[in-house]
Computed example of a mutant assay.
Amino acid sequence: MLAKIFKHKKRIEKEKIFSPLTGELLPLEQVPDPVFSQKMMGDGVAIIPEEGVLVSPVEGKVVQVFHTKHAIGITSVSGLEILLHVGLETVELNGEGFTALIEEGQTVKVGDPLLNFDISLLKDKNKEIITPIIITNYSDKVDEIEHVDQQAVSRGENLFVCNFK
């Protein structure tokens, strides 16, 4: 990763990822969906949200807002590709219970609201609310993830640090 600072090139060695939700932090291996738990899409963590507000975990650009509004893709300023996937099998709701607050192509900062979602509705529809936060280009960009040592997180708190290759 290179960034221009004062016309000199400086290697970016790591990037902090901040919590997009308030809730209980879980290892990805505990997500009851093999696509996430077996890290088929990349590495990261999951959060069981306490409230239905999803914010940006990084400074970057929104590259995808799924038409069903249950998932958002962001590319950070250092090139990490991050997937925020609210709930499991929530694509089946066709956007019901989700309100996107941003659009594709929009630039975001840490803490900018991305999406509101109705936790009660998701539970009423028998959907898991566990929300994976995945670095989808992990194998290309990241050497290791330094996880925080805590079980509960609040929006905007440090979630993990990606050390680049």
Rank of each mutant, 00 (worst) to 15 (best):
I48R: 14
E50N: 05
G52H: 12
V53W: 03
V53S: 02
P57G: 08
V58T: 11
E59A: 12
E59D: 12
G60P: 00
K61F: 11
K61I: 15
V65G: 03
F66M: 14
H67E: 14
K69R: 15
K69C: 08
K69P: 01
A71M: 08
I72H: 11
I72E: 05
G73K: 14
G73Q: 05
I74A: 09
S76F: 02
S78R: 05
S78G: 03
S78A: 12
G79C: 13
G79K: 06
L80E: 02
L80V: 13
I82H: 06
H85C: 07
G87S: 01
E89W: 10
E89T: 07
T90Y: 04
T90N: 04
T90L: 05
V91K: 01
V91D: 01
V91A: 02
E92R: 09
G95L: 03
E96S: 07
F98M: 01
F98L: 00
T99L: 09
I102F: 00
I102H: 00
E103G: 07
Q106Y: 07
T107H: 10
G111Q: 05
L114T: 02
L114D: 00
L114F: 01
N116T: 14
D118A: 03
D118Q: 08
L121M: 13
K123L: 15
D124K: 15
D124V: 11
K125R: 15
K125I: 08
K125W: 06
E128N: 15
E128A: 13
E128W: 00
E128H: 13
T131V: 09
P132E: 13
I133T: 04
I135R: 06
T136G: 13
N137M: 13
K141V: 15
V142F: 12
I145W: 07
I145H: 07
